[in-house]
Every structure is written in C-alpha cells, then in structure tokens.
C-alpha cells in the first residue's frame, strides 16, 4: 500500500506543477519526476515495485469504461467517419513503420556491438 501512496503523491505533484504553468499534463510530469526519483535513489525500487507492477499489468482494465463511452458519441464520429478512419489507419501504419524501421536501423545492432566490445576485452 505504501507503493500506491508514493505513486499517487507523484501524480499529485505533477498535477500541482501543471496548475502552476508547466505545459505538460500532470500525470506525465508525475511520471518524469517519479522516474528521476528512482534514478536518484530518493525512492527505493522495493517500496513501489509491487504496486507499480500491479497497476501496469492491469492497465488494459482502466481503458474499458472509456471504450464503452465511445457509444455516446457515435453521431459526431459518424459525421466525419470516413476522414477520421482514413486518417487513423494511414497515420498508425506510417508511425509504426517509420519508428520501427528507424529503430531497427539505429538500435538493432546494439546487442551485437556489446558482444563485440566484450570480445575485444578478451586477451
């Protein structure tokens, strides 16, 4: 339970900073500060790990009520249906392939590079 308290405290910290004028959403500010606190050792992993893993593992659950809420706005979506659907599918494919392709080119050889570096250290 301590983990939940710490996590919610960081969310509130983020929300507060957002209200004070930082132009990023509260939960994202909370995420950035929470990660920094973990890296700096201000928050220990064992305090928060179980609560955080629980929340992340069941994140799909948290989207179910919002999905059901889509039924209340079918009229607006239908009026612009074709344009919105085309935009959604085209943009999703574009982002998946650009990001995945670039990452494949720039990041994929990392593990091989690491093995080579270790090999260099061998006599």
């Amino acid at each position: 339970m301590l983990g939940f308290v710490i996590i919610v405290a960081f969310q509130l910290l983020g929300v507060g900073l957002h209200r004070l004028g930082v132009p990023l959403p509260g939960s994202v500010l909370g995420l950035i500060l929470f990660t920094l606190a973990l890296m700096l050792g201000l928050v220990r992993l064992e305090w928060v790990e179980r609560s955080a893993v629980f929340l992340v593992r069941h994140m799909t659950l948290l989207f179910i009520p919002l999905m059901a809420g889509l039924t209340t706005m079918t009229a607006e979506l239908r009026r612009n249906g074709v344009a919105l659907l085309a935009s959604l599918v085209a943009s999703l494919l574009a982002v998946l392939l650009t990001t995945g392709g670039l990452a494949h080119l720039l990041l994929a050889d990392d593990e091989i590079a690491e093995i080579n570096r270790e090999a260099d250290l061998l006599p």
């Binding site: 969310q11 983020g14 939960s27 990660t35 973990l38």
Partner: peptide
C-alpha cells in the same frame, strides 16, 4: 466504471518502474 478512469493517472506514473528497470 469511472473509478477505473481515475486510476489511469497513477498507472501512467507507475510506468516509471519498468522504465527505471530498463534504464
């Protein structure tokens, strides 16, 4: 059902743990 929507905020913050572990 809205209870779960409120939990999206803490769940977003909780992503810090896997990010830190892979960091």
């Amino acid at each position: 059902g809205g209870l779960f929507t409120y939990l999206l905020g803490p769940a977003t913050v909780a992503l810090g743990v896997p990010m830190y572990k892979q960091g």
